[in-house]
Every structure is written in C-alpha cells, then in structure tokens.
Computed example of a mutant assay.
Amino acid sequence: MADQKRLAYSIIQFLHDQLQNGGLSPDAQESLEVAIQCLETAFGVSMEDQGLAVSQTLPEIFEAAAGKEPEHIRTNSEPITPSEDDIAEAERLKTEGNEQMKAENFEAAVSFYGKAIELNPSNAVYFCNRAAAYSKLGNYAGAVRDCERAIGIDPNYSKAYGRMGLALSSLNKHTEAVVYYKKALELDPDNDTYKSNLKIAEQKMKETPSPTGGPGGFDLAGLLNNPGFMSMASNLMNNPQVQQLNDSYFHSMSGMISGGHNPMGAAGTSPSTNDLASLIQAGQQFAQQMQQQNPELIEQLRSQIRSRTPSASNEDQQE
C-alpha cells in the first residue's frame, strides 16, 4: 500500500504541475482538479505529504523508461560539461526569466529557467530562481524540489535555504521551515528577512488551535475584548445605513435558502449570480463603514495580519 501511495503522490504531483504550467483550457483545468480530488480521496494522500515524494518526478521516470536519461540523473552519474555557447545561452535565458518575474509572468519565467537548466544543469542559481517562480504560482512542492537540487549543487547557497523555508512555510511545515531558515541565517547572518521569517515560523510551531482563536492564530478573543473595536461595532449596529445593509444581507440569505439553495454549495443548486452579487456588495459597503468609523483600528488589524505572514521581500530578487 505504501508503494501505491507513493505512485499516487507522483501522479498527483504531475497533475498539479500541469495545472499550473500546462497552458490548459478552463475546462481541462477543471477536469484535472476533479481528477486530483478523486486521487487524493481514493488513496488518502495530498500534496502536503512530502514524505511520499520519490527522487524522480513522473516525467523523469517516463523519460528514463523511454530511453532518455532524466536531467538530474545525467548530472549525478555523468556530469555534463556545457560548452561556452551553452553557458552563454543559459545565462541569456536566465536573464529573460528574471525579466518575466519582474513582469509577473511567472509561468513564462518557469519555462525560461527550465531551458537554462537543460543547457547548464549544474548551475544552482537556475534551480533556485525557478523555485521562486514556482512559489509565485502556488506550486510549493515544485519549489521544494528545485531548492533541494540547488542545495545539492551548492550546499552553501543561503538563498536556496531561505526559499526552501518559505515554500515549507506555505505548506504549513513550520518545523522543517525553521531548520532551513536557521541554516540560511548561519550562511547570511545579517539577512533581516530570514530573521523575521524564522520568528514567524517558530511562533507558528508553538501555536495550537484555540476555541477563541481564528485562522493562523488570529487573536479573536483579544479583538472582542478591545474597547475600541466593540465601541465601533456598537455604533455601526445602531447606524441606520448599516441596519439597512443587514436587512439586505439577511434578505439575500433568506432568498437563497427558501429557494432551495445552499449558501456553501454543498448540496442543491448554486446560488444565483444576483444573490452572490448582493452579498458581496453588502460586505463591501459594511467594510467601508468600518473603515470610516475607525480607520486607526482597521489599520491595527491589518498590521496584526501582516505580522503573521512570512515575507518574500528579498527572495524576490533574482540573480
């Protein structure tokens, strides 16, 4: 059964990569999402089960079976010495990838870095840069793999450890992220981003779910005990405009429920576009009222949320 789970994980990993980078139509993407959900349910695995990963990706295994040795097998068993022309072209492709990153064309950046790797697979920077692009696309498993390759090539490459920590944090693997952030700081002790991200990862390691706590350790209990917030909430509830928004909200909800709709989409037919639009509009107006009533408190809440999110500021600088 363990081997079946590993195989299922490799297939899901491949489908995730295709979903992010395959250039598929919306219908095809939806079909892949359904396939991923079915496989995860059937085999009890998910992309967070990094322990099920094998040394080769599914395309690499296929290439080997088809008679073409995968990229990292070639580099490990028979190191390739690229020609000067290949090195120069790989650098050009890497630079183009960096430009695509600046333009936030992350899928294109992945493609350029991949081509650079094909020409010069012994350059750790190319793998590390592609890891950053993968993270921007939400493909954190791909980022982890590329960081592992970069570290394998250059064990003293601090940025690879930092980006590995960021990817692991995004996968909620904070204990592992702490290890990599510490190594990054050991190699680059003056890096403020690593210091900040390490503190966040260490804090999240210690956190346990609380009945009064919100997602990500958000201090809901403290918020409810905040006199400024409660005063603002009381004023808002007594505001005729807000009461009108509440009436509109509950009217929309009642219409959805009485019409046989499930607001959560778990059963029955989906809410109509008009119903959802009304809810979104009511929520936006309510938020505007809160902002007008007490902008200082709203900024405090935003700061609290920002302080609990790992930063990728210096990780965005491609080499």
Rank of each mutant, 00 (worst) to 15 (best):
I257L: 07
A282Q: 04
M264P: 01
Q288K: 14
G283A: 11
A282N: 07
R302L: 11
I257C: 01
I298G: 00
T269Y: 02
F286L: 13
M253P: 03
S270P: 00
S248M: 05
Q285N: 12
M253Y: 03
Q285K: 12
S272K: 09
N294Q: 08
H261P: 02
H251A: 15
Q300D: 09
P271F: 11
L279S: 04
T273N: 04
F286H: 04
G265A: 08
Q288C: 09
S248N: 04
N294H: 05
M253W: 01
Y249D: 02
P263D: 05
E296V: 15
Q291R: 15
G265H: 07
M253F: 07
G283E: 06
S303I: 10
L276V: 15
S272E: 03
Q293K: 10
Q288W: 03
A267K: 06
E296C: 06
Q288A: 15
L279V: 13
Q291E: 13
G265W: 01
P295E: 06
Q292K: 15
Y249G: 01
A267Y: 00
E296P: 01
Q292S: 14
Q284R: 14
I298A: 03
P295Y: 03
M290Q: 10
D275S: 11
D247L: 09
R302C: 10
Q285V: 03
Q293G: 01
T269V: 15
P295H: 05
A287Q: 14
G259V: 15
A277W: 00
S303P: 01
G283P: 01
M256G: 01
A266I: 12
S254D: 07
N274F: 06
E299A: 10
S278H: 03
E299N: 12
S270V: 11
G259W: 01
A277T: 14
Q281W: 02
I298E: 00
Q291V: 14
P271W: 04
S303D: 10
Q284K: 10
P295A: 07
L276G: 02
H261Y: 09
Q300H: 07
F250E: 03
S258M: 12
G265D: 04
L297G: 03
D275G: 03
P271L: 11
P295T: 09
S252N: 02
A267F: 05
S278L: 09
R302V: 11
R302S: 11
G268P: 01
T269S: 13
S278V: 08
I257S: 00
M256W: 00
L301F: 12
S258Q: 10
A277R: 13
S270E: 08
H251D: 09
N262F: 04
I305V: 14
I257W: 00
E296R: 09
S303N: 10
N274I: 13
H261E: 02
Y249W: 13
S272R: 06
A277K: 13
L297K: 12
G260S: 07
S272T: 15
I298F: 02
T269M: 09
P271K: 09
H251I: 07
P263N: 06
D247V: 09
Q293F: 07
P295M: 08
Q288F: 03
D275R: 02
F286K: 06
G265Q: 05
S252P: 00
G268I: 07
Q304L: 12
A287K: 15
L297M: 14
